[in-house]
């Protein structure tokens, strides 16, 4: 049974009462929410994800609700909870859906240290994974969305999970978060891409989520071997260009972008060393998505 087996009102009813346990690759997340925006968002963006039985084990139990204060009558808010714990301040209620996605990212990056968790997008072709670590604003999510729409399998647009023993990439395939100008860029790039409702004036500007490709969701439990680490940088009018990067500097950049590097101690150091050893590392400047796709196509065939 998938999320799409429910009508939106049925899903809303379930979310309000028992909640729903959604299977995301190897993980199960239990989501509860009385807010219609959450039911609509999940119905649209998680349609193809399997639903687990109510008795299934859930890795994380999360909810998005109105906080219990009087503001709900004036300027309604939404609050994210990880079980009973509230990691962030409430946001305006029209940001409820992105709040759920950010909250789930928080769960994976702070409450689950079985894997190294790098702040990076990761996609795969022919079993080999391309890791795109970058600070916000570098065009990482846009690039990741475009590649996912052109035949690469989406593993994650935000969190790259690396197993410490085998150095495999564990997918955590969820909707791709797009911000500001990326939204029309992707809409023009692929008019058939499904985008959820836009949240305006968030701390990151306008935010919208793009549905993950069905095939990526279906293969959400298949690990991939890391092959390339590419640090992307969008530059107006630049011609797409890959430049080899020293492994030592790639190591430092990855360590800086890893949420739980110090939490894993020596294990974290060894995992990043091994990961960088196994990958070709590049800096990549680009301005055109088509050129970028051609560049990575060539890379994947080399």
């Amino acid at each position: 049974m998938n999320v799409s087996s429910f009508s939106t009102p049925e899903l809303a009813h379930k979310l309000r009462h028992t909640g729903i346990k959604i299977r995301i690759g190897v993980f199960t997340i239990h989501i509860q929410s009385p807010l219609p925006a959450i039911a609509q968002g999940l119905h649209l963006l998680y349609a193809d994800y399997p639903v687990e039985a109510d008795q299934a084990f859930a890795d994380f139990h999360v909810s998005v609700r109105h906080p219990s204060n009087l503001r709900r009558w004036l300027a309604p808010q939404a609050i994210f909870r990880f079980d009973n714990y509230v990691p962030f301040k409430p946001l305006p209620a029209d940001q409820a859906y992105p709040l759920l996605e950010w909250g789930m990212n928080w769960c994976f990056s702070t409450q689950y240290h079985r894997h190294l968790v790098i702040h990076a997008a990761v996609i795969e072709k022919n079993g080999r994974a391309l890791i795109l670590p970058a600070p916000p604003g570098s065009g990482k999510s846009t690039l990741c969305a475009a590649l996912a729409l052109r035949g690469w399998r989406l593993l994650s647009d935000e969190l790259t999970l690396v197993t410490p023993d085998e150095i495999n990439i564990v997918p955590m395939c969820r909707p791709v978060s797009l911000k500001n100008e990326s939204i029309p860029i992707i809409q023009n790039f692929e008019p058939s891409a499904t985008l959820g409702p836009l949240a305006l004036d968030t701390s990151k500007g306008t935010v919208g989520h793009m549905r993950a490709p069905t095939d990526s969701i279906r293969r959400g439990h298949e690990e991939a071997l890391p092959a390339w680490i590419v640090f992307p940088k969008y530059e107006a009018d630049a011609t797409a260009q890959l430049v080899k990067r020293h492994k030592a500097s790639a190591f430092m950049q990855i360590a800086e972008n890893t949420f739980n590097y110090s939490m894993l101690g020596l294990g974290g150091f060894n995992t990043i060393s091994e990961l960088v050893d196994r990958c070709d590392c590049y800096d990549f400047t680009y301005s055109s998505l088509d050129q970028a796709i051609a560049t990575f196509q060539t890379l994947s065939e080399a």
């Binding site: 890795d59 689950y112 240290h113 079985r114 939490m263 894993l264 101690g265 294990g267």
Partner: peptide, 9 residues
């Protein structure tokens, strides 16, 4: 998986 993750921490 959660117990083992915690053991590492």
């Amino acid at each position: 998986a959660h117990l083992e993750a915690t053991l590492g921490v």
